[in-house]
Nucleic acid binder design. Structure first.
Length: 729
RNA sequence: GGGCGAUUAGCUCAGUUGGUUAGAGCAUCUAGCUUACACCUAGAGGGCCGGGGGUUCGAGUCCCUCAUCGCCCACCA
């Protein structure tokens, strides 16, 4: 084919139109198969023994829609992936979606109730699961196609869903293995109970919210005790004070006294425990071990009785006497009235500000309860695959402390350590139905933990596992574990985990825990934490503020390339990213700028004759030097995860150096009479263009590929820019 | 209560290990249809780098301290 002397592609006569290019290009990329590293090897663009680069996509909620947080994540990861692929690495980016068990189930339950006035119990487990599964399946295409619209070069042939068969196998295997090692145990401990969702939730899912309530001072025998929760106090028969509190020296540990209480006289026992703070109130407290984590600990230490006062739905039990059967919210004022009448109320602070535990998913207040659940022991020494014996906590800390895993930005190391230090045993069982069912079987008080039913008469535990239990396996369950697949051997540990800093505890830490114990490898070598996307003024985006910028609208208006750049430039790891429509518009203009640079170069080099070249002038040489030193700088920033600088430098080189200076000064040469000097410069310009396209491709894949597709054949070393070699310098 | 971070141009932020007159985008103002681009070009204005103290030949950059804002964690009944 002879492109010389022919007019350049007439598309260049119009401004660049993302709309006319992006979808078609993505389709072409997908059809080429190059998102799949196996195809890259097959077609010879990647060496079979090349170094690997792998990332797992933090799986979005299967029923979700794309928001700016996703967009930022996709942009960042795709930049890393495309750059490494162009470097010639065997590059794999694995897509997937998450069942988001609680969220999805309650959404479907809500809809069923609205339409059919039926609860999950009316439908039964099987039917509910069928409906939830159906809903998840039918809505997954939305998030998948939206993910594609960002230009994400994910290998869809390896798509994984947290509840598919392969992942099921991995989760079951992990559970059994951890149980056999003594890491998973069943026990009656205090847990966070969500009375609305009727399930336990983990410590990390708790959000402390400030609330103002009356604070009551009650007369408890000779003591004064304080509380915001009179409704829990019925069974309080232990009174706790600090062993060194001189005010109460006359009372001895274990001493019993008679006190007048809500429903009549009771026998109270004095407990001396250092948990009682002398500075707080009277320094004396009564405890409710069944409904308070601190109280539970005290009771455990001294072997005290524990009694349930409130049931799973927030209703008072018979211990509450005349108040039994009432909901705690309604009962509270009535209880206080009664106590007033008994002369038990000493004082009331009407406006006491304190924190209450709520479910971070927004379902409401958490009620601590003692329940028999499955836990992961974090302080128990167990044997790791490398033969060493240590606790999960120790191993988790060591991965970062010893440099096996590097977190960017570094300051999150401390936050990570702090979390580990405060970590308590992880409650992993949930009382919902949508999820991986606990592989435990009961019969006549006996328990067996195994994947298949032990036989007739054995009932499987109805509970399912915390969604983060399966998410913790994600780096290797997506690669085929527990089978020793080629993928697993090739791509694990993964190179980078890129995710929001808000999820470091839920996910990052859990992945490290699971991976180090189960397979003896860290799940990833680097952690890159991106910030939260905020509006142009740095405010959180929220519906109520009306400042949400929808990525899909922005793609429609300005193109995915513009969104990608606007989400990366200025987004240092760990820092929140302010995003305004102005910023996006600015980068859309840049895409068009690149389009016009290409048009200029192509139209002015269409008569290029390679044979007529002169040696490079000093200025020609300088232009190329600048080009390649920009490449080197961008590369250096990319290697060190400074994407925000890399993107900015690439942008500046192309606009302020190439367009503003090189192109301008080339005009007289291109119009000049010296044919040799002219074709030398033409060669230089072509080189600048093709290298610039490569330089920008990771950041703005669509417009760069769109130009590449319109280059004359002799300028393209590969069919797709996506798999062109990153420029050497 | 504990910890972390921020404070630089009107706004949002860079400024990588301390080194010449402190940068960008947007916004503002001025001038331009110069045959790549008005989604553009040329230019301008605008900053005691939060306050105070210290280390240094030299600090936006390191140390101390104060102030304000933000975030995370936490079992004060």
């Amino acid at each position: 084919m002879n492109d010389k002397n022919t007019a350049i592609n007439e598309d260049f006569l119009k401004p660049y139109s993302p709309k006319d290019n992006e979808e078609a290009l993505y389709k072409k990329w997908e059809e080429s198969g190059y998102f799949n590293p196996d195809v890259c090897i097959e077609k010879g663009v990647t060496a079979p023994d090349a170094e690997t680069f792998s990332i797992v996509l933090p799986p979005p909620n299967v029923t979700g829609v794309l928001h700016m947080g996703h967009a930022a994540m996709l942009a960042t990861e795709d930049i890393l992936v495309r750059y490494n692929r162009m470097q010639g690495k065997r590059t794999l980016w694995i897509p997937g979606t998450d069942s988001a068990a609680i969220a999805t189930q309650s959404k479907v339950e809500g809809e069923i109730y609205k339409k059919e006035k039926k609860t999950r119990h009316d439908l039964g487990r099987e039917e509910l699961l069928r409906r939830v599964g159906e809903f998840a399946e039918s809505s997954k295409d939305t998030i998948i196609s939206q993910t594609k619209s960002m230009g994400s070069s994910l290998d869809w042939s390896r798509y994984a869903f947290t509840l598919d068969e392969q992942r099921y196998k991995a989760v079951m295997t992990a559970f059994v293995k951890m149980y056999e090692a003594g890491l998973i145990y069943r026990g009656a401990r205090i847990v966070n109970w969500d009375p609305n969702l009727q399930t336990t939730v983990s410590d990390d899912e708790i959000e402390h919210v400030e609330q103002t309530d009356p604070f009551y001072y009650f007369k408890y025998g000779p003591f004064t005790i304080g509380t915001v929760r009179p409704e829990t106090k019925f069974g309080d028969k232990y009174v706790v004070m600090h062993p060194d509190d001189v005010r109460y020296a006359e009372y001895k540990h274990g001493q019993q006294i008679e006190v007048e209480w809500i429903n009549g006289p009771i026998t109270a026992t004095i407990i001396k425990d250092e948990a009682a703070d002398r500075e707080v109130g009277s320094g004396v407290m009564t405890i409710t071990p069944w409904h308070s984590a601190v109280d539970f600990e005290i009771a455990e230490r001294h072997g005290l009785d524990k009694e349930q006062v409130i049931d799973e739905r927030g209703i008072l039990l018979p211990i509450a006497g005349e108040f039994a059967g009432q909901h705690i919210k309604k009962a509270r004022p009535a209880i206080v009235e009664k106590m007033k009448a008994q002369g038990l109320v000493e004082k009331i602070d009407e406006k006491y500000v304190h924190n209450v535990s709520t479910n971070s998913r927004g379902s409401g207040t958490i009620e601590p309860q003692i329940k028999e659940q499955w836990f992961v022991a974090v302080n128990k020494a167990v044997q790791f695959p490398d033969g060493r014996t240590m606790t999960l906590k120790e191993r988790m800390r060591e991965t970062v402390e010893g440099g096996e895993i590097a977190i960017a930005p570094e300051r999150f190391n401390k936050i990570y350590y702090r979390w580990i230090d405060n970590l308590r045993d992880w409650c992993i069982s949930r009382q919902i139905w949508y999820g991986h069912r606990v592989p435990a079987w009961f019969k006549d008080g006996e328990v067996k933990v195994q994947i298949e039913s032990p036989g007739k008469g054995w009932e499987q535990d109805p509970d399912t596992l915390d969604t983060w239990f399966s998410s913790g396996l994600w780096t290797f369950s997506t690669l085929g574990w527990p089978e020793e697949t080629d993928d697993f051997k090739t791509y694990h540990p993964t190179s980078v985990l890129e995710t929001g800093y808000d999820i470091i505890f839920f996910w990052v830490a859990r992945m490290i825990l699971m991976s180090t114990f189960l397979i003896g490898q860290v799940p990833f070598k680097n952690v890159y934490l991106h910030g939260m996307v905020r509006d142009g003024k740095g405010q959180k985006m929220s519906k109520s503020k009306g400042n949400i910028i929808n990525p899909l609208d922005m793609i429609e208006k300005y193109g995915a390339d513009a969104i990608r750049l606007s989400l990366v430039v200025g987004a240092a790891p760990g820092n929140d990213v302010p995003l305004s429509e102005d910023k996006i518009r600015g980068y859309k203009n840049f895409a068009n700028k690149l389009w016009n640079i290409s048009r200029f170069v192509l139209s002015n080099t269409s008569d290029y004759d390679g044979a007529a070249k002169a040696p490079l002038s000093p200025r020609d040489q300088e232009i190329l030097n600048q080009l390649y030193s920009s490449v080197a700088e961008v590369e250096n920033d990319l290697k060190n995860f400074r994407l925000y600088l890399a993107a900015e430098k690439a942008y500046h080189y192309v606009w302020d150096e190439l367009a503003a200076k090189v192109l301008e000064e080339s005009k007289p040469i291109l119009n000049g009479d010296d044919a040799k000097v002219k074709s030398t410069r033409q060669a230089v310009l072509r080189e600048c263009l093709s290298v610039s396209l490569k330089l920008l491709h990771p950041f703005m894949p669509f417009v760069t590929e769109a130009v590449w597709q319109r280059l004359p054949e002799e300028m393209k070393e590969t069919e797709f820019l996506m798999v062109a070699k990153w420029p050497a310098h």
